[in-house]
Write a protein that binds this DNA or RNA. Structure first.
Lengths: 214, 214
DNA sequence: AATATATGACTGACTGGTCAGTCATTATAT
DNA sequence: ATATAATGACTGACCAGTCAGTCATATATT
């Protein structure tokens, strides 16, 4: 399908078409990789879902592994940049920035396709260290940096009495990670109210950070 | 190797031998599964590492998938039972029980082979829902029950002013999960001091739970 | 405007290699 | 001598990647 017959306005409409087709292949690949895992995913099936022939995939990526890497790269870069801009621009208390971050996390990661990307990375990172490396560089280290910055602001302004999150920003998002994995694996068996859990975490953490020094 | 030629004392030494050989096959399978992932793991390689021929594996398990399930089952049952006994028997404050739990977690899970089992389950659970189910039933739900019990004791005795952990026991172990994944995937790239992080988490959580009602 | 030629994106049958599982044979134990 | 356990060569199904051929569209020619 998708045999465009429109009178193409611009001469270089080509590149757009190309990108769109690559995207449809990546979308299909994500579905199949998630369902079967990388090794058990069949390129014939990816091709069928994308509505192209198998050979066509090789016009866009040089190998199955490159398909995976391209897929990961194309999906993870964006949102972190967006949120960095969004949060850092705010004139707000550290608490409000953290709340903003969590709200973004809920809306833009959990409950979207991006959560599946993370799941895919977790599943395949053991086998492909390069994936872990890419993800750490593009997402994790930037996320930690963002969190640490917020925590430092909180400490500097006197809003937080503890520097725990400056030292271990991981503690702030740990429940987010748990929520991600829980929904991916156990939500059908033993559902939890993610929103309420994260709200409870924020409240606890704020109480601990703002409380008097012990 | 391992061609035992000792004069076997007992007549029914058989079953022991059988179990020992199965165990050596399972040990080998865990190594290979972790290194390659389930699908890319080669039974020839498992056999070689276990010091048996491939056919021998089929005298102990009926299929490759059964090998994975047997492996998981044989490794996860134990420690939760042990810790339930250990912690519940204590006459101690809720805080001390939590500290005991974390100390156990550090010593008996993180830093042992069992952490690899969890990693294996995370990697394969997407493809084999049965694995997620087994793990939830045998470990997760029991762990949550244990945590909730401790939290309830804390609330009932007045030690904790918040019921947050009763409602979401997940929040208490979320940093443990993060530590597990971080060490598995990022420890070489960006190491963290797991012990210090978990200690910080406990301190924060205690302050929040024990602090005055807001 | 009509026709001829060139292009290259796309196709899918095919190949070469791989591996889970089998089973006839061999080794060991009783 | 019989029974039991272990072996590893073999097989049949499977699939990533290839490539000769197709055809819709673009360009050149008359």
């Amino acid at each position: 399908m998708t045999k465009q017959r429109m009178p193409r306005s611009a001469p270089a409409r080509k590149e757009e078409d190309r990108q769109a087709k690559l995207q449809s292949i990546l979308d299909a690949a994500l579905d199949i990789f998630l369902e079967k895992g990388f090794t058990d995913a069949r390129l014939d099936e990816v091709a069928a879902r994308a509505g192209v022939a198998k050979g066509t995939i090789y016009l866009y990526v040089p190998s199955k592994q490159a398909l995976l890497e391209t897929l990961i790269r194309s999906e993870i870069g964006g949102p972190i940049g967006v949120i960095e801009q969004h949060i850092l621009a705010l004139e707000a208390s550290a608490e409000d920035k953290l709340r903003g971050l969590f709200s973004f996390l809920r809306k833009e990661i959990l409950g979207t396709r991006r959560v599946d990307i993370v799941r895919l990375i977790l599943a395949e990172a053991g086998r492909f260290p390069k994936l872990a490396e890419i993800y750490h560089r593009e997402v994790i280290s930037r996320g930690m940096h963002l969190l640490r910055g917020i925590a430092e602001q909180g400490v500097a302004s006197g809003e937080f009495h503890s520097d725990a999150i400056v030292r271990f920003p991981q503690l702030a998002i740990a429940p987010g990670l748990l929520a991600l994995l829980w929904t991916a694996f156990f939500q059908t068996i033993d559902p939890i109210d993610v929103e309420a859990m994260l709200e409870t975490h924020l409240a606890l953490m704020m109480k601990a950070l703002k409380g008097p020094l012990s």
